[in-house]
Computed example of a mutant assay.
Amino acid sequence: MATSFPVLCTRGSYYDVGYSVGSTFQSRIQTYIQKSFLLQDTLLPFYDSREGRDFVEAMLSMTEKNFPKYVDEVRGTAQGAGLPFETLFVNDLLMEIYFGYNQKTPQLTREDLGCSTVYINRPDVKVIGHNEDGEDIAKTFGYVVDATITGDDGVEEKFTSLCYPGGLPGVSIGYNHHGMAFSVNSLAGPTVGNTAPSDFVLRAVLRASSIDEVKDIVSNAGFGLSSGFNINVGSIVDTSTQWSVEVAPSVSESKVSIKEIHESDDPEESTYFHMNEFRHMGIEVETAARSRARFERAMSLPVPTCTRDVRNILGDIDNKTFPIFRTVRPTDEYATVCTGMFDLLDKRFDIYLDNPSKDTGPLLTFNMQCGA
């Protein structure tokens, strides 16, 4: 098991930051690409087909119009990592290809979705805890990027984000210099073609300074969204409310539902869980058994009232088939890569690489400061 998770602090243009990430983590990215069964068994073979090539080129054309700066960032990462741009761009189309457009691998189902989130919003405890689930090798080859992206008029973006090797920041756990904290859960649902890739929309969310700006970004008016997701949002500036943002794909403009978790002394009212199902948008889709099992187990445990309770829930392994804290097993190809804990009152972000219910403490701790 990996015992380290490197952090890169970098500053420059979008391309420069991407290049710095690619060149610094070249070995990690190349090894991950070679070993990832998602890429080697599904994404890249799909791209090698005529249908896949046409799809990726259409998505690239759309994304260059919608998010040209983030395409530059991917180009920089690919150049720095010594890999074809198309390889990393395809990696950023995971949700679209994996669940929507690759019909040659019928064994792939919505059961493969991952991530679990626990909220507490009490007067004295304001926590968002998140299990980041993915390929187990991401635990070995992942990294954190602390980036300041500069433009002609000064700072354009400043954020800290957990990253999958070669992938865009923003698709997992992170925060920005506006004091906004984010984590992401994949959502099963219909997939829409010829619209913006979800990873690029999530990358854009890292620049948000308020929940209103989050809503505006994910709505993506004029372009829409191709695959749905849930963003768990908190703020060290306005700690009175936390937000669960569900986004469903649609052409021209995404569908958005925001659930507010208000501060309360009532443990039931101050607690919320989100896994991989639409909870408040009213969309009925095929339920993933893994997600349902994690949700039901979390709901069966004592209502959490402190940070330790959240860690215990996210580290729970009572269900031997579909545990909340996931490890590779005959019933599951995926694992919990790490656990992120946002303490909004202490303005602190902790990353646990091991099971968070243990007393080993976080591997990494970041101080969340506005403007810093």
Results as ranks from 00 to 15, higher is better:
P330Y: 11
G167Y: 12
E286W: 05
G371K: 04
R11G: 05
E96P: 00
P45G: 05
F46K: 02
Q107P: 06
A81W: 14
T140F: 07
K358T: 15
F322L: 07
V125E: 15
R294W: 01
C115Y: 00
S27R: 15
A81Q: 10
G222M: 09
R308P: 10
A196T: 14
V245Y: 02
F55A: 01
D266C: 09
E132A: 05
W243N: 08
I236G: 12
D343E: 11
V7I: 14
G361H: 04
I173D: 15
D136N: 12
A147I: 03
P362M: 06
N312I: 11
F159H: 03
V71W: 07
V7R: 01
E132F: 00
R207V: 07
D346S: 15
L44C: 07
S219T: 15
G282F: 11
E96R: 14
I29C: 00
T63A: 13
K215Q: 13
P362Y: 11
S23R: 01
L93Q: 05
E296M: 12
Y14L: 05
F67L: 06
K65A: 15
K158E: 14
T331S: 15
N232V: 00
G22H: 09
L353H: 05
L301C: 04
V251T: 10
W243C: 08
S300H: 05
K126C: 05
E73R: 06
A81R: 06
I317P: 08
P169R: 11
S186Y: 11
C306R: 08
F295H: 13
V90G: 03
L345E: 14
Y19M: 09
D92I: 04
V337Q: 01
S257F: 10
